[in-house]
C-alpha cells in the first residue's frame, strides 16, 4: 500500500512535465500556415544541399569515407530534419528573464529548467513529426533509393529524441546566461556553428581531418545530429549502444550544469518593477 502510494506520488510529479510537453505540442500545431512555410524552407535547404553533394561526388568519383552519394543525401535529410526541429527556446528565455515574465514560472510548483526542457520537447516532437516524412520523401525522390532499415529508423528515433533533449538543455543553459550577461545571442551563435561543423550538420564528422574528429569525439555536440543520422543510414548495434551511453551521460552532465546555473542565477534575480 505504501509502495503504491510512492509510485502514485512519483507518477504525478512526472505527469506534470508530460502535460507541459503535450500542451507545448498542441500550441505548436495551432498555426498550419507557419508549418507549411517551414516545410517549403526544408525542401529548399535539402535541394541546395543535395545539389552541392552531387557536384562534390561527381568530382570525387568513388565516394567519401564510407558514404555513397545516396547515403550522404539520406544523412543530410536526417540531420536537417533534426536541426530544424531543435529548441527555439533561447530567444524566449532571454525575453522572459529580461521582461520579468519569469516571475510567473517561479511561483509554480515545478522545477523551471525541467519545465523548459519538456516545453521545448513538445514543440520539437511536433516539428520532427511534420518534417521527417517530408525530409525522407525528398531524399527518396532525389536518390530513388531507400537507405533506411527498420533498425536504422528506430535507432534514429531514439537517438534523435535524446539529441533533442540534449539540444534543449544546452539551449536552456545558454539562455540562462541572460541572468549574467546582456546578450546571449553570440553564445548561442557559437553553439549553432558547432552543430554546423563538428556537430556534423553540413559534413559528416567522418570525412573531417583527424584532429577535428578527435575534438568532436570529446564534445557533446555530435550527439545532437551526427550520431542519430549515422545510426539511421548506417546502423550498427555497437555504434547505437555507444551513442546511447554517450548521449545519456551528456544529458546528465548538462542537467547538472543547468540546475547549478539556475540555482546560482535565481539567487541574484532582480526584476524590473520589483
Amino acid at each position: 500500500m505504501k509502495k503504491k502510494g510512492i509510485w502514485r506520488y512519483n507518477l504525478r510529479k512526472i505527469q506534470k512535465y508530460l502535460e507541459v510537453m503535450k500542451i507545448s505540442f498542441l500550441s505548436s500545431s495551432s498555426y498550419s500556415r507557419d508549418v507549411l512555410g517551414s516545410l517549403i524552407f526544408l525542401f529548399l535547404i535539402l535541394f541546395i544541399m543535395f545539389s552541392l553533394w552531387r557536384v562534390i561526388f561527381s568530382s570525387n568519383g568513388s565516394g567519401l569515407a564510407h558514404f555513397t552519394l545516396s547515403k550522404m543525401l539520406w544523412y543530410v535529410a536526417s540531420t536537417e530534419a533534426l536541426m530544424l526541429s531543435g529548441s527555439k527556446l533561447r530567444v524566449r528565455i532571454d525575453s522572459e528573464i529580461r521582461s520579468g515574465n519569469i516571475a510567473n514560472f517561479l511561483v509554480k510548483p515545478f522545477f523551471y529548467p525541467l519545465f523548459l526542457v519538456f516545453d521545448s520537447l513538445g514543440s520539437s516532437i511536433f516539428s520532427l513529426i511534420i518534417r521527417l516524412p517530408v525530409a525522407f520523401t525528398v531524399a527518396l525522390f532525389f536518390t530513388l533509393r531507400l537507405e533506411l532499415t527498420i533498425n536504422g529508423f528506430l535507432s534514429y528515433v531514439i537517438l534523435g529524441f535524446l539529441g533533442l533533449v540534449l539540444d534543449a538543455l544546452i539551449t536552456i543553459f545558454i539562455g540562462f546566461f541572460a541572468f549574467f550577461i546582456e546578450d546571449t545571442a553570440p553564445v548561442y551563435w557559437i553553439y549553432n556553428k558547432m552543430l554546423f561543423t563538428i556537430g556534423g550538420l553540413l559534413i559528416p564528422v567522418d570525412i573531417m581531418p583527424e584532429i577535428i574528429k578527435k575534438v568532436s569525439y570529446y564534445l557533446p555536440f555530435r550527439f545532437v545530429l551526427y550520431n542519430p543520422a549515422i545510426s539511421c543510414v548506417n546502423f550498427s548495434l555497437n555504434f547505437f549502444i555507444a551513442s546511447l551511453v554517450g548521449v545519456s551521460i551528456s544529458i546528465l552532465v548538462m542537467l547538472f550544469l543547468t540546475s547549478m546555473e539556475f540555482s546560482v542565477a535565481s539567487r541574484r534575480l532582480s526584476i524590473n518593477g520589483g
Binding site: 505527469q15 502535460e19 498542441l26 500550441s27 510567473n104 509554480k108 515545478f110
Partner: peptide, 27 residues
C-alpha cells in the same frame, strides 16, 4: 499569484487547456 501585466495562460491555446495543464502541475 496574479501579475496584472503578465499572463500565465498559453497564448495560442484556449484557457481550458491551460486550466487542464495547471491541474496536473498542482497535482
Amino acid at each position: 499569484v496574479v501579475f496584472g501585466q503578465r499572463s500565465q495562460l498559453w497564448y495560442h491555446l484556449p484557457p481550458i487547456d491551460s486550466f487542464s495543464l495547471f491541474s496536473k502541475i498542482y497535482e
